[in-house]
Amino acid sequence: MSNRIIESFYTDGACLGNPGPGGWGLVINFVDGSVVEIGGAEEQTTNNRMEMQAAIAALKVLDAARQSNPVTLYTDSEYVKKGITQWISGWKKKGWKTSKGEAVSNQDLWQSLDRLNSNLITWKYVRGHSGNPGNERADAIASAFASGTSPSLQQAFPSNLEVALQEISDPNVAGLSDKTAPTTIAYKEKQSSVLTAEQTMTESLANNVLEDLNLPRELRVTQLRGLIESLRIADEIASKGYLISSSELADLMDVNASAVTSRGDHWPWRNWVVSRVRREGNQILWQLERVD
């Protein structure tokens, strides 16, 4: 599978209790429109550390991709954005002390961010929960891991990220706690109405990588249950003749909404044929018909 050029990252962190169980999410957008999603969890952490952990994962991916194209990293954490672009130089000059002479919090992660930071990265703040699709998705991934679950995701990825994903899953890499849960990886297939031979090979490769990452059986079963639940819902929608919107269908398929609307008026998905029925206001309504 050919390499892809990274266009942007969306990062987010979540924590239940703060401190408490936490999760981080990373959405990687490529110039060809494809998307890779990564997430992880820690048993006891803080929201700031999870925000930083997501950014560290993004920088590790960029380093492994070895591309020369600039990338924008979006974060809804002013702590992360201002820390890496404004405060860190002063902290380093003062021996990792604040202006009050106190030790900088989360120094281990700040040092990792500083070491991995690249002049290819443009750090940008995006307001959380404001409807930004990338930010909302990163938040959903982080929140799922923080709550002890994981999103139901298709498990494949571009070949040029294999090294990065292996590194991120290594608890001994600086910046990753030894309590970090195994990373969940997902690749959302490019906007196409049929499964290509390249995508088939990608899914096979992804299965091998997941085995290499030694994901716990419980996590694999949880992901499978999530998939089965999505398929059950699709079957009920088809049997009852319900109409669903593009955004609802995208959530069901776990793809971007644009991947639904760009496929045309009539196309196959798993055990169903999806057909465009009509438009109501700003919404396109779709119907699912079961085919075995």
Rank of each mutant, 00 (worst) to 15 (best):
N3S: 13
R4Y: 05
I5S: 03
S8G: 00
Y10G: 00
A14L: 06
W24L: 02
F30D: 05
D32H: 08
G33V: 03
G33M: 01
S34V: 10
V36L: 15
E37W: 00
E37C: 01
G40C: 04
E42L: 05
M50E: 04
E51W: 11
A55L: 02
A57G: 15
K60I: 15
A64R: 08
R66K: 15
P70E: 07
T72K: 12
T72V: 15
K81P: 00
K82W: 00
K82Y: 01
W87E: 09
I88L: 08
K97F: 04
E102I: 00
V104E: 09
S105G: 15
L109R: 14
W110N: 07
W110G: 07
Q111P: 14
R127M: 10
G128Y: 10
H129M: 07
N132Y: 06
N132H: 13
P133W: 09
P133I: 11
P151Q: 05
Q154V: 06
A156N: 02
F157Y: 15
N160P: 08
I168N: 04
P171R: 12
T180K: 14
P182Y: 14
T183Y: 07
T184W: 06
I185E: 01
K190F: 04
S193F: 10
L195W: 11
Q199N: 08
Q199T: 11
A206N: 03
N207M: 11
V209G: 00
Q223T: 01
L227A: 06
S230G: 01
D235S: 13
E236Q: 08
A238P: 01
L243D: 05
I244H: 03
E248T: 04
L249T: 03
D251N: 14
N256P: 09
P268A: 07
V274D: 02
V277E: 13
E280W: 04
G281P: 09
I284F: 12
I284S: 14
L285C: 01
